[in-house]
Amino acid sequence: MKAVHYYRCMRGIVWREALRFLNQRGRFLAALVRPLVWLLIFATGFRFVLGVSIIPPYQTYIPYQVYIAPGLIGMIIMFQGMQSSLSMVWDRETGSMRTLLVSPLPRWYLLVSKLVAAVIVSVLQAYVFLGIAYFWGVHPPRLGYLPVFPALILAGMMLSALGLFLSSVIRQLENFAGVMNFVIFPMFFASSALYPLWTVQQANERLYEICMANPFTHAVELIRFALYEKFNLEAFGVVAGSLVVFMVLAVLGYDPGRGLITRRGGAE
C-alpha cells in the first residue's frame, strides 16, 4: 500500500462528502440556525449585562457579540463533529459504513479520512457563519480569516475524535439527546465560549479549574486568538494533545471485535 493510494482514498472520501453537501444545501444551512439564534438574539439581550474587560487577544473593549463569536464557531464545529462521528458508530450496520470498511486501507485511516471530510464541511459552515456575523458587528482583522482555518481544522478534528471515542465506548450515548445533555452542553457552558474565565474564577475557583481542564475551552481560545492573528501556544498544545489521545482511544474503541454490535447481542 503506497502513499499515493492513501492520498487517493482520502481525496475520494472528502470529494464524496463535498458532493453530498452540495446536494443537501438545506441541511447545511439549517445547522447554522442554532449559532445564529445565539448571536442575533442571546448576544443582543446580554449585550449590556456583562461587563467585558480588555482581555487578550482583544486590544480594546468589545461588545458581547464579538466576544461570543469564536465560542459559537466552536459550537458549530462541535455539533457537526459530534454528529458525524456518532453517525459513524450508529451507522456501522448501514450501507455507507460497510462499503467504506471493505476498503483495503487500514481502518484507522478510513476513520480519520471520514472525520477530515466532515470537519472540512463544518469549517465551511463556520466561514458562512463568520460572513453573516460580519453584518452583526463582528469585524475581526481581515487577515485573521486565514490563520483561523488551521485552527478550525485542528479543533474540529479534536472534537470529532472525542465524539467518535465517546460513542464507541459509551453504550448509553445512543441518541443525540443524550450526547447533548451529557457532553455538548456541559462542555459548552463550562468553557470560555460565553464568558471570559476570569468571571468564573471570581465566582467559583473549582468551576474555573474544570473550565480550564475542558479541551473545548482551549479549542475556543485557539480559534479566538487565530481570528485575531495571534497564536495561543497553550491552547494549541492542549488541543493537539487531546486530538492525539482521543484519536488513539477512538480507533481502539472502534475495534470491530469489541464494537456495539457484538455487545448488543448482534443482529443476523
Partner: peptide, 19 residues
Amino acid sequence: LDLELSVAQNLYYHAALHG
C-alpha cells in the same frame, strides 16, 4: 448505493477507496 450521488460518482468513490 449513495442515493444522493450519481451512478458514476458512486463508482468513482468506490474506486478511490481502493486507491
